[in-house]
Simulated scan of single mutants.
Amino acid sequence: MEHGHEIGSHSLAHFAGLTFNMDTLIMTWITMAIVIVLAIAATRRIELQPRGWQNFLEMAVVYLLEQVETNMGSKGQKLAPLIITLFLFLVVGNELGLVPGFTSPTNDINTTLGLALMIVLIVHVLGIKNKGFVRYFKHFFEPYVPFVIINIIEEVAKPITLSFRLFGNILAGEILLLVLGMLVPYFVPTLWLAFSVFVGIVQAFIFTMLSISYLSNSMQDGH
């Protein structure tokens, strides 16, 4: 493995003919570690009246479970751990770039596209499992055979729009925060920092809710 290569602010590593963004990989590992630690901390001493991180985690879990139940029904309960973990990863990952010396793993299109492709792959796997191979792929040709082109474009657009929305918002927020820090007094960057925290949570929520919507289609009997 070869290190010490820099493009902009990204450290690259080359292995087996592939190029890896080490900044993204390291920040992804840190994000996963933080999610695990916070989950353990929130469930280690569960209180009847939750406070702090336990309160936020409990509200998030309850709300996501309600959304899973509403959109997917009882079949969707098996996907609840995936949905909850995805949301927590996105929240922590989006906010990590606001900490000095860190960057968000979600400011890299490789991360967001990878997550989006994971969701779309699960959608198709569940669709085939729940509806059967022939019945599932038959809906791409409905209501008329020529619609197959439109339906395929729609399927291709799902991971693209899902990933670019998250990537664009997080990257733009971090860049603007750096620019404001260099051009204006501390007050304005502080305000933008607070707004960026809000944006990070909202973007995690949007990505998760769209994922639930896509997954629910594969769980339903209708088209």
Results as ranks from 00 to 15, higher is better:
M118T: 03
T31W: 01
L98N: 02
S211G: 13
V184L: 14
V35Y: 11
T103I: 15
A172T: 12
F164A: 06
M219T: 08
N71R: 10
G222K: 13
I34D: 08
V188Q: 04
M22L: 15
K131C: 12
I84F: 12
G168F: 14
F89P: 01
F87Q: 00
P185Q: 03
R45E: 09
G200E: 02
V145G: 02
V99E: 04
P105L: 06
T112M: 11
V145L: 05
L64F: 14
E58L: 09
L113H: 13
W29C: 13
I170N: 00
K131D: 11
S211Y: 03
T43N: 10
G76T: 10
K131P: 12
L176I: 13
E2V: 11
L98Q: 00
L183N: 07
T24H: 07
L193E: 04
F87A: 02
R51L: 09
F187E: 08
D108I: 06
N110H: 13
I109V: 15
Q203N: 03
L48G: 14
F164V: 12
F89R: 01
Y136S: 12
V62C: 08
L113F: 15
H124Q: 06
T31G: 09
K138S: 05
E6S: 04
F56R: 00
G73N: 03
V91T: 02
T85S: 12
D23L: 07
L121V: 09
F137N: 02
L12P: 02
V92R: 00
L86I: 01
L65W: 03
